[in-house]
Computed example of a mutant assay.
Amino acid sequence: MKTIIIGGGKVGSNLFRTLLEKNHDVVVIERDKETCLKIAEDTNAEVICGDGTNFDVLMDAGIDEAEIIAAVTGTDEENLVICQIAKFNCNAAKTIARVNNPKNIQMFKTLGIDNIVCSTEVIANLIECELDKNKYRIVSTIERGSMVIAELIIDAANEWRGKMIQELSMPEECVIVSVLRDSFVIYPKGSTEIMDKDKVLVVASRAALSEITRKMNKRKI
């Protein structure tokens, strides 16, 4: 499997080294000559000095044989152009784009980019989770981080306590998967009652999770 990385900055160069260490077939494209020389000296691997938005440069890198294209430059517009060229002109199997401005995420999704990575959003989500750590715990993320598997901790202040699942008001983008009570796992039904100290496992969008935790902790003890 061949991978082409466009952008030899900190993100791109570290990604390049990591893949090389795992014996992947990988090439990096970087427009700055000094950066190219440094990467080549450090890795003793193939580095192409050129503009990653230039079709001829991409062809020289072997884009017609690549299965994964990772555009990780510091410019969102450049990463978008690269991924679109790869996707629609070269039939690349997978495109991965770094997004610096979270406001551009939806546009990238709409335009068909397969995987989108936004470090700003990731850090913001980690901070939000830490601030709300007494309300829930993120178990895993899916769909490139847009959905989460979370464990909601039920206590005396939680409005879900004492209610049956069929009585709960939940957003559409949320499903209760299981209820952990002591050492038992309960597969929920509409008549399942949520009790104090239960841990409720849900799959939800981040927006839905924020809505749930905001509402369910309004109740006074």
Rank of each mutant, 00 (worst) to 15 (best):
M59R: 09
V57T: 11
I194A: 08
V175P: 07
S169Q: 12
S183H: 10
M216P: 10
N54P: 05
V175H: 11
E211V: 01
R17C: 05
E65I: 06
K33C: 03
E128S: 10
E77I: 06
A157H: 13
I68Q: 12
V185W: 02
I123P: 04
T95A: 07
A207N: 13
M216W: 15
N23R: 13
V179A: 04
L209A: 00
E173K: 15
K189H: 09
V202A: 10
I4A: 07
I149Y: 14
D64S: 03
E30V: 06
T18I: 01
N158C: 15
L37A: 11
A204R: 12
E67G: 07
S13F: 01
L15R: 06
F16N: 03
V11C: 00
C129Y: 02
Q106G: 08
A40N: 02
L58H: 07
A66Q: 08
D114L: 04
S119Y: 10
N91L: 01
M107P: 05
R98P: 07
I116Y: 00
E34F: 02
D155C: 12
D32F: 11
I149V: 14
M147G: 02
A124T: 11
A208P: 01
G62D: 02
A124E: 08
G7D: 12
V175N: 07
I68N: 11
I68K: 05
F55D: 10
M1G: 12
L15Y: 04
S205N: 07
D198K: 14
